[in-house]
Design a protein around this nucleic acid. Structure first.
Length: 592
RNA sequence: GCACCCGUAGCUCAAUUGGAUAGAGCGCCUGACUACGAAUCAGGAGGUUGGGGGUUCAAGUCCCUCCGGGUGUACCA
């Protein structure tokens, strides 16, 4: 029997083969192997229960027959894996310490761990529609989740073999430009002279402009005209618009660098303004879009909410009644562009949960449109998350009604982490403490956002976001730092091969080895639903298993074989933790 | 009104999508540093999974119904 890299999959296929040759089972039998509660074993198969139910037979008897057949085959060496039956008909598989040890010897590097993951999205062209930010506005706390979740998902997909295009789909063609240009012209602002805080000034100009419109409604007409001029390509307004977009891009670039967000292309909504006409034409030509109240819309009768005869009409409005494009028009044009330009196999959208209707309509429309035209339809998914709420359970605002600025949040994270580092490690020089604080502070913030199920809303709290104890980034970073410390002490490169190790013995060694093996399953689970908290949970459990091992079993003992074995476990743990942290966008540290 | 989402320990969250005795962290209580790093470890208390009914070998998870909260409801993105 070979040492399976991915035991869950290996057991699943072995059982399928065996069942096909065993009386009482049919081809429709699915073993249903999954990681089990460690109290019962490493993996469990519970497909026998469902199968027995469908076929009106005794599940325990059936399970016993399958186990007997499995044991008679050469697929399960009893020295490496044991099978037993439990409860109404579960089959439990327990890997022996001998298996766990051989697994550690067989698979050791990041590449080894990645080899299983690579198959998951091998060569897939995936476009990720990155955290889109509106131009001319400062990023606030609402931009935290898209950036954090987006980069983690992009790194995961990349690790799993996808060919990624990270597209920064900026909102650079909105109606807000009318107001902004009106105010800029009115105050004769020279945008090129604003300096470093240009975006803050723009932000203020927009707010002041909006306030002014409320006081003097006649200004709205002027703003609307400025927008029309811009859309018609007026030279002066286009120049102003270009400057505004440039200022915004520079400001966002600064944040992206701090947040570790990578961008491959930046194609804003303005890029698609000459591409929407084809959308109108094609959707009209295939009979999908029609006029309604002067607008061009698409109905989806199979969904009650979007059906034509719904008491409150809710079509997908793809062109406004004044003839202007909107969110839907550019999104449709964008899908087509991504197909034709990038040959996208998959497109992932990142927005909060409130936009689910939009994406449902977008996906339905694209599906029908592409089918009618014979275009290849990419897989489209909407990765959404809950809102960050204030203590009043409303979307988060400070007392003055403003959202916390993202920059302010990052600075607070660094500053809190710096205080803790200084308290714990006063002997380190300031530059190193700053570097550690960067990873700990920003890492803690990211991890807090990633470690809970993204679909839930959560209430904002500094302490929640910047906690350094328990299931947090610093806990994982600390485990890595301690491992590094051990290798430093004996002057051994943790990446180097380790020879002469003896097999696993203690309970904590075995528990750690067991946990190490689970990395690939954790990746699969995370990728399935694009929910990073599964990876966080796994990494936390691994770090916890390591901490227990570290407390129970001394690594640097006199016996060379025991020392080598424990150093090997340390090295493996380090590799998995570092790889996992990098996937989450958290920078591992040599010491902290 | 209609549609969708949510309600789990004092607090913040898990529970591999219907699997076995619902798990963690924080907080609280007991212990463990002349150290391979205590940002840690070992242990304890804490639950009628909002209430009620149903489906089945099995329900926090699925169905029905109440209660409480959130979101969306074409020409903002």
């Amino acid at each position: 029997m070979e040492i399976w890299f991915n035991p869950s999959n290996a057991i699943e296929s072995a059982l399928s083969t065996i069942a096909a040759q065993t009386d009482g089972f049919g081809p429709e039998f699915i073993p249903g192997v999954r990681p089990a509660d460690p109290r019962f074993g490493d993996y469990q198969a519970n497909g026998v229960l469902a199968f027995a139910k469908r076929n009106q037979v005794n599940p325990r008897e059936l399970a016993a027959r399958l186990i007997a057949a499995a044991e008679a085959s050469d697929a399960f060496d009893p020295k490496l894996v044991t099978l037993d039956i439990a409860g109404p008909g579960f089959i439990n598989f327990t890997l022996t310490p001998a298996f766990l040890w051989q697994w550690q010897l067989a698979y050791s590097t990041k590449d080894d761990y990645q080899s299983g993951a690579k198959a998951l999205r091998d060569g897939h062209k995936v476009i990720i529609d990155y955290p889109s930010a509106n131009t001319a506005k400062q990023a606030h706390i609402g931009h935290l989740r898209p950036m954090v979740i987006g980069q983690a998902i992009a790194r995961l997909l990349d690790f799993c073999g996808a060919d990624m295009v990270r597209d920064n789909h900026i909102g650079d063609w909105g109606t807000n430009f009318g107001t902004l240009i009106m105010k800029i012209k009115r105050d004769a602002i020279d945008l090129s002279a604003l300096g470093d805080d240009a975006l803050i000034t723009l932000d203020q100009l927009y707010k002041d402009g909006s306030a002014l419109e409320l006081e003097q409604p006649e200004l709205r007409t002027i703003s609307r005209n400025e927008l029309v001029l811009l859309q018609q390509g007026d030279q002066v307004n286009t120049a102003i618009w270009e400057q505004i977009v440039e200022i915004s891009k520079i400001a966002f670039e600064k944040l992206f660098v701090q947040m570790g967000v990578e961008v491959d292309i930046t194609l804003g909504e303005s890029f698609y303004r000459d591409k929407v006409q084809r959308v109108y034409d094609e959707l009209t030509q295939i009979g999908l879009a029609e006029e309604s109240d002067g607008a061009l819309v698409v109905w989806h009768d199979e969904v009650k909410k979007f059906a034509r005869d719904n008491e409150r009409p809710y079509p997908f409005n793809i062109r406004k009644n004044d003839g202007a494009s909107n969110y839907a028009s550019t999104d449709l044009a964008t899908v087509l562009y991504r197909l034709e330009e990038f040959k996208a196999d998959e497109i992932i959208y990142l927005t909060d949960a409130r936009q689910q209707d939009h994406f449902q309509q977008l996906f339905l429309t694209t599906e029908k449109w592409f089918k009618a035209k014979g275009y290849a339809l990419p897989v489209m998914s909407h990765v959404f998350w809950g809102t960050i709420l204030g203590s009043d359970k409303k979307p988060f605002k400070t007392k003055s009604g403003e959202s916390i600025k993202l920059q302010e949040l990052l600075d607070e994270a660094r500053s809190r982490a710096f205080d803790v580092v200084t308290e714990k490690n006063p002997e380190l020089d300031e530059a190193e403490r700053r570097e550690i604080a960067e990873s700990v502070g920003i890492g803690a913030m990211k991890y807090a956002d990633l470690s809970s199920n993204r679909t839930q809303d959560y209430v904002f709290s500094w302490d929640r976001l910047l906690s350094f104890e328990g299931n947090t980034a610093p806990y994982l970073l600390y485990a890595v730092a301690r491992i590094n410390s051990i290798f430093r002490k004996v002057s051994i490169d943790p990446e180097a091969p380790i020879e002469g190790a003896s097999p696993l013995e203690t309970e904590t060694e075995i528990a750690l080895a067991r946990k190490l093996m689970g990395f690939v399953s954790a990746l699969e689970l995370t990728l399935n639903d694009l929910r990073p908290h599964f990876l966080c949970t796994y990494l936390y459990e691994l770090a916890s298993a390591y901490s227990s091992f570290n407390a129970a079993d001394k690594v640097l003992v006199d016996d060379d074989a025991i020392k080598a074995r424990r150093l090997l476990l340390c090295a493996r743990t380090r590799t998995v933790l570092q790889t996992g942290l990098e996937l989450l966008g958290i920078q591992p540290l040599e010491r902290m």
